[in-house]
């Protein structure tokens, strides 16, 4: 039975559009970047989607502390998992891009390090979840850590660029897909791509939650 909700169809359409459009539509010619600017459509959008998912995870953690329920806990943990998955994808696309633009897969750059820390925090979150047996207790502890870590993370991502300069396009005088260089044709692919990947992430989350619920039914 095909019961696709409208937002799932939208996710497919937008992601397909961003892939096809991302490779075919003309992009501005900038020094250093050249055609690699197309990575904006994948690398940057994946990370936007990741941050949205992590924010949802934090919101549901707060909800869980206020009114503990299995549903809130499931949403918080699965959005964090899928966010982690998007984070890894974003890291890989960024590393491939860096190899061709900066000449190395990993450079000591603030944004790169910021991502590494984001991933470490959420891996720690999964380890923490894995270490507790009791369901009720696991949800509570994980929620506490999630809120604490997310606030520190946001602060960190806010502070770090002010303490160091970044090699990333748009920082320290590098040509950018930032405010001035991204023209309107790029925006026409960029914003839909963010929405597309975000919806795609929600879809994954939806599946994982249903899977978890079926697993629970089978074990009980």
């Amino acid at each position: 039975m095909l019961a696709l909700k409208w937002w799932k169809i939208l996710a497919i359409v937008l992601v397909l559009y961003s892939i096809i459009g991302g490779f075919l539509i003309d992009v501005p010619k900038l020094p250093i970047l050249h055609e690699t600017i197309r990575n904006t459509y994948f690398h940057v959008t994946l990370w936007f989607a990741m941050m949205f998912l992590m924010t949802i995870s934090m919101v549901y953690s707060i909800k869980h502390l206020g009114k503990p329920s299995q549903q809130n806990d499931l949403i918080a943990s699965e959005t964090a998992n899928i966010g982690l998955f998007f984070g890894i994808l974003g890291l890989v696309t960024g590393m491939i891009w860096a190899q061709f633009t900066w000449g190395a897969f990993w450079v000591n750059d603030v944004k790169t390090n910021g991502t590494a820390i984001t991933l470490l925090i959420y891996f720690a979150y999964t380890v923490l979840r894995g270490s507790v047996e009791d369901d009720e207790k696991r949800g509570r502890i994980a929620a506490v850590y999630n809120i604490f870590a997310f606030v520190m993370l946001v602060l960190f991502l806010g502070i770090l660029p002010r303490v160091n300069d970044s090699l990333h396009p748009g920082n320290g005088g590098n040509p950018a897909f930032g405010n001035y260089d991204m023209d309107n044709t790029m925006r026409m692919v960029f914003y839909p791509a963010i929405i597309g990947y975000f919806l795609m992430g929600l879809w994954f989350v939806d599946h994982r939650i249903r899977l978890k619920k079926i697993e629970q039914k089978l074990t009980v």
Binding site: I117, A124, L128, K137, F148, F156, I159
Partner: peptide, 28 residues
């Protein structure tokens, strides 16, 4: 975070796993 680790499992490795990434803003 040691309070978090104590409620979770009570082992010491957990403290380092949880606190290293969170401590980095301070550290840098």
């Amino acid at each position: 975070l040691s309070a978090v680790a104590q409620t979770a499992s009570g082992n010491f490795t957990m403290v380092s796993i949880l606190s290293f990434p969170v401590l980095l803003p301070f550290f840098l």
